[in-house]
Design a protein around this nucleic acid. Sequence first.
DNA 1: CCTTGACCCTCCCGTAACCGGAGGGTCCAT
DNA 2: ATGGACCCTCCGGTTACGGGAGGGTCAAGG
Lengths: 129, 129
Amino acid sequence: MNVGEAAKRAQLPVKTLHYYEEIGLIRPERRANGYRDYDDTALSKLQFVQRARSLGFSVAEVRTLLSLYEDRHRASADVKALAEGHLDEIDRKIEELRGLRATLSHLVDACHGDDRPDCPILDDLAGQG
Amino acid sequence: MNVGEAAKRAQLPVKTLHYYEEIGLIRPERRANGYRDYDDTALSKLQFVQRARSLGFSVAEVRTLLSLYEDRHRASADVKALAEGHLDEIDRKIEELRGLRATLSHLVDACHGDDRPDCPILDDLAGQG
DNA sequence: CCTTGACCCTCCCGTAACCGGAGGGTCCAT
DNA sequence: ATGGACCCTCCGGTTACGGGAGGGTCAAGG
């Protein structure tokens, strides 16, 4: 199938399929006219990649996941380790955001937010706090 | 003071000060020998920027915050609105990460993680789930 | 006076994961 | 034959810098 159809079925932009081909992640066949031709295998991989990306795995991680997927003899422990690493990363990010949120939320609450000029948010940023 | 000293006091890499100058965020004076020269005002701004960035404001947002900071007549409501917008953004990201975390955590728990090859994580990514 | 090391300078390329657009070819239906 | 919907490649831009080359400057020590 053409790139447009493959993109639709994988729920990805055409540009993204171009990109995945360029970086050697998923290389479709080519027709005589130069058009990309995605077969069922390629489409499955695209969907695999789309799902992994939507779970927040980086393209580099997805590349590893794909190769693990295609290796019938890998241990599930390898996959689990990668997923756990990603989980830790997510936890780290959540914690960081929560910290930011707490600080910022304090400042926002302290700011009366009317037409007067004094503002604890700016005061804090300026180093008063 | 020289860029190295300013960087140290603002807890920012020298490269970052170069960058901030390049994008017109904070422009230091220049000495006769071409060296950047940060005065107290410039240093204060750097520290302001560093704090705002560490709270997760984008450079574009920081630019606005700086101009609000330097405008003695702005309403605190303007600042509060920007900060609240950022807070919403943070909440959105936290929610998204929590969703990812939940899904991924399920998958990781379901994967026995030994040397056998069957793996619910890959099965799910492949569309079995 | 000279050297040495720690600074400083200006380019310029690379990062992640694409998006947008220009300029031009292809295919299918009317 | 023509129009519109596809498709192609190439190039530049995005965020917020980091790394490094190639080369000037400055202050201290010999």
